[in-house]
Amino acid sequence: MNPNKFSDAEIASVYKAIRERRDMRHFLPTPLEAGQLERFIQAAHMAPSVGLMQPWRFIRITDTELRRAIQQHVETERLATADALEQRSHEFMRLKVEGILSCAEVLVVGLTDHREKYIFGRRTMPEMDLASASCAIQNMWLAARAEGIAMGWVSLFDPETLRQLCKMPEGSQPIAILCLGHTAEFYPAPMLEIEAWDKRKALADICFENSWGD
């Protein structure tokens, strides 16, 4: 008997949240419950981070004009991405890539400035601050899904442009625009699978033993 193990029901809930989490693009304008956003940010803040540096910073976008400016910038980047995709550009343009104007809450997630002073765990891999912040975002995603709230991670933006829009300090780096809100229904599978953009790889294609490919 493992004394550290959760109950069977608790374990099932954890795996259910992981399995049914979706990168959402369709939202209802219904506001979140009081305290709900704070719970999600607290869940994010409980994530592990290299050297306990806690590199994540969250900016809640409540100004309507700023939200609109962010959406317009994402749309500009969407068109540039379509051009870069060449043969798949028309296929890409049919996809819905964000819900910035329709969701209840928008958060911009950034890496803090002065990150170079953190050496623990980053001497040979400085990008571990990004990995740490990604863990925080995943925590938020799972907490939101457990409470029936949809979340989408938008990455179609120029970091320097978004940094200036949000008045972030020099040396900081935005890494995500998060859309959160109620939805009519969660996608039964990842949207890009439903739209036949790509499909999930088999475990045998990603898991090896002792050396790559074995």
Rank of each mutant, 00 (worst) to 15 (best):
P3D: 05
N4C: 06
N4G: 09
K5I: 11
F6A: 09
S7G: 14
D8H: 12
D8N: 13
E10H: 14
E10W: 12
A12T: 09
S13K: 15
V14W: 14
V14R: 04
Y15P: 00
Y15Q: 10
Y15A: 05
K16Q: 15
I18K: 02
R19M: 10
E20D: 15
R21M: 07
R21F: 04
R22T: 11
D23M: 09
H26D: 08
F27W: 06
F27K: 03
L28W: 04
A34F: 07
E38W: 00
R39E: 13
F40N: 00
Q42D: 14
A43G: 03
A47R: 04
G51P: 02
L52E: 06
M53S: 15
W56C: 06
W56P: 02
W56R: 03
R60Y: 06
I61T: 04
I61H: 02
T62N: 09
T64G: 02
E65S: 14
A69P: 03
H73K: 10
V74G: 00
V74F: 01
E75T: 13
T76A: 12
E77H: 04
R78A: 07
L79F: 09
L79R: 15
D83F: 11
A84K: 12
E86G: 11
Q87I: 11
H90E: 15
E91S: 15
E98R: 03
E98K: 02
E98H: 13
C103D: 02
A104W: 04
E105T: 14
V108K: 00
G110R: 01
I119W: 05
I119F: 06
F120I: 14
G121V: 07
R122E: 08
R122G: 03
R123I: 11
T124S: 07
T124Q: 11
P126M: 11
P126T: 10
E127H: 13
E127D: 06
M128K: 09
D129E: 12
A131K: 06
A133F: 03
Q138N: 14
M140Q: 00
W141S: 01
W141G: 01
A143V: 07
A143M: 10
M151T: 07
D158Y: 08
D158G: 08
E160K: 13
E160S: 08
T161R: 05
L162C: 06
L162H: 02
R163P: 05
Q164K: 14
Q164T: 14
C166V: 12
K167G: 09
P169Q: 07
E170K: 13
E170H: 07
P174I: 08
I177C: 00
L178Y: 01
C179K: 00
G181D: 03
H182G: 03
H182E: 08
H182I: 08
T183W: 01
A184S: 11
E185F: 05
F186W: 07
F186T: 06
A189K: 09
P190N: 02
P190W: 05
M191H: 11
E193H: 09
E193I: 13
E193P: 06
E193A: 08
I194D: 02
I194Q: 04
E195Y: 10
W197E: 03
D198K: 08
K199G: 05
A202P: 01
A204N: 14
A204R: 10
A204S: 15
I206E: 02
C207T: 13
C207G: 04
C207Y: 12
F208E: 06
E209M: 09
N210P: 03
W212D: 02
G213E: 04
